[in-house]
């Protein structure tokens, strides 16, 4: 019974969280904290923190965390499945429409208009992360002590390597993680 409830709850989360990421947070909170009481509010905040520190979407992460808590490993699997299923159905339906109609002029027009917006959305995500990294989440200011120079330096080196050497980005990220550990330990910032 618990497994069915978990599945249904995360099915709704998957269905209702349009726009991904932080747009999903209120929906998840409503289901997990308010409705079922599977996690307390501080525990839910912990899940958000973990999600920021580990790979993967918040919805999938909380599905795993809550599922484990409530019903062990099978709970985690069932909750994740419930979370992914609505996406699967809707996205595939749209994909079929896209490949059937994309040579139509009207469809071409719609997509032509959407492409610059997609680039802008990626740019916006990049900008948000850049501000978060360089100013440690504080308001932007150009006074020197407020800027995280380790982060700025790592960013510039990574960008230069990506532009000129075209390596696997995952290698750059791993290298930057190690360099960051050394640099932050040496400078003693937290």
């Amino acid at each position: 019974m618990t497994l069915v409830m978990l599945f249904w709850s995360f099915f709704q989360i998957g269905l209702l969280s349009i726009g991904g990421g932080y747009a999903a947070m209120p929906v998840i909170q409503h289901q997990i904290v308010d409705l079922h009481g599977w996690l307390s509010l501080p525990e839910f905040a912990d899940v958000i923190t973990i999600s920021q520190m580990t790979p993967g979407p918040i919805a999938i992460n909380s599905a795993t965390f809550v599922g484990l808590r409530v019903a062990g490993l099978s709970g985690a699997v069932v909750a994740t499945l419930g979370c992914v299923l609505p996406s699967f159905a809707i996205v595939l339906a749209l994909a079929v429409l896209y490949y059937r109609f994309r040579s139509l002029r009207l469809m071409q027009g719609i997509l032509q208009g959407m492409r610059p917006a997609v680039v802008a959305l990626i740019a916006s995500a990049g900008w948000t992360l850049l501000v978060l990294d360089f100013w440690k989440g504080r308001p932007i200011s150009f006074r020197l002590p407020s800027i995280d120079f380790v982060s700025v330096g790592l960013f510039l080196i990574a960008l230069a390597l990506l532009r000129w050497k075209k390596p696997n980005p995952v290698l750059i990220m791993a290298g930057s993680g190690i360099a960051g550990l050394v640099a932050y330990l040496l400078t003693g910032t937290s």
Binding site: I122, A123, A125, G126, L129, L130, L132, D133, V150, S151, V152, L154, F155, L156, A158, L159, L162, R163, P169, I172, M173, A174, G175, S176, G177, I178, A179, G180, L181, A183, Y184
Partner: peptide, 13 residues
Amino acid sequence: KGMQAAVVAVVLD
């Protein structure tokens, strides 16, 4: 934190 700096570079590239 170190990895996040590289993430920003990957995105902007």
